[in-house]
Nucleic acid binder design. Structure first.
Lengths: 196, 196
DNA sequence: CCTACCGATCGGTAGG
DNA sequence: CCTACCGATCGGTAGG
């Protein structure tokens, strides 16, 4: 009769979500069973249902927590009185830090959102679309003010967003490359290129 | 008693693999059943086993076809007598074209390789590691010849590799952006940056 | 190529 | 929180 131990900054539900995020990242949503999550925590699968409604609800919690974090950040960035370049830098920085602080969750939101059920799937995609559009607006502002090259804004946005997702790989090389180097190098690369 | 129709340039097995790639991309490997693949083709699930050995074998065929295509390309690029910049450009170009010509397969190789069984999983990761190392060597050459900035080669490699993966998103915007614009913009961005 | 079927495992519920 | 269990679905096989 083991028990789920709620931590200081999280309910039992949060403990389950955290374990689920780790498992969903390493084995995928469809490849992870409720029995595995339960085993990881030390209880029977059926006990989980005292704290959560369904497996899909776990995925929803993970995906929207991540989406909301990014939305909140761009809210702050948008109102700053600074150049478009600096705004992009702030956004990239936040993506890098999210990837380090909430690796499992960001990974799952990036890879498993397709398994979301309606209406959550549509909501998630809508929120991501809005985020992209707001990035495009920042870039359009930069092009108008001649801060940025006149490249296709949409291409720039998903080049940047995709590049920061590459930090998933980086998790395996943590020891060799420091966060500071990584951040500086990546921002340099994505803003100023690599040709000398 | 429907039959699998082999096309001119592919056996019945190839037809099954192609359908599987499409399904694995849209629903994930674990989220796709053999019954769904069969239904897509118009036969019963058990009939598939006259042409293939197992579900995992389908994933293997997809992942290694893609891996081999990339390996063959870097073989050709490496021996060319040209600058490191041109070599990177050729590699990026090939990634873009693979993403367009074999979208499903590249997507599956990128997202579902984790579901590979041993020893295929190790082989796949090894092959990818070799590819990355060869890109790093090209970049190191460019740094020595002062063609490229002295940034961390590994960070450059996965910034580039991740960025081209962003073309997955682009599939949804095909109508608005031409391949030519996309290719030129992305290469400009990844090599020379976006700051004016 | 199909019908018929196997054992295993799944998400989830009832009831205590 | 657990035991016991449900119906559904899975990958795969036997046999024709």
């Amino acid at each position: 009769m083991a028990k789920i131990i709620a931590s200081k900054n999280g309910s039992k539900k949060d403990v389950i979500i955290k374990k689920a995020a780790g498992l969903f990242r390493s084995k995928g949503f469809m490849g992870s069973s409720m029995r595995e999550i339960a085993e990881n925590i030390g209880v029977e699968a059926s006990s989980l249902y005292n704290h959560i409604g369904s497996k899909n609800e776990l995925l929803q919690s993970i995906c929207f927590k991540v989406a909301n974090d990014f939305t909140n950040n761009i809210n702050e960035v948008e109102i700053q009185q600074t150049s478009s370049i600096k705004k992009l830098e702030l956004l990239i920085q936040f993506h890098i830090h999210m990837m380090l602080d909430a690796y499992d969750e960001v990974f799952v939101a990036n890879h498993e959102w397709k398994q979301l059920q309606e209406p959550f799937l549509s909501n998630f995609l809508h929120q991501r679309k809005l985020y992209e559009n707001r990035m495009i607006e920042i870039i359009n502002g930069g092009i108008k003010k001649k801060e940025l090259k006149n490249l296709h804004p949409h291409v720039m946005v998903f080049t940047i967003l995709s590049a920061v997702r590459g930090l998933e790989f980086w998790q395996q090389h943590k020891k060799n490359i420091s966060v500071t180097v990584l951040e500086a190098n990546m921002i340099e690369h994505l803003l100023k290129g690599i040709i000398k």
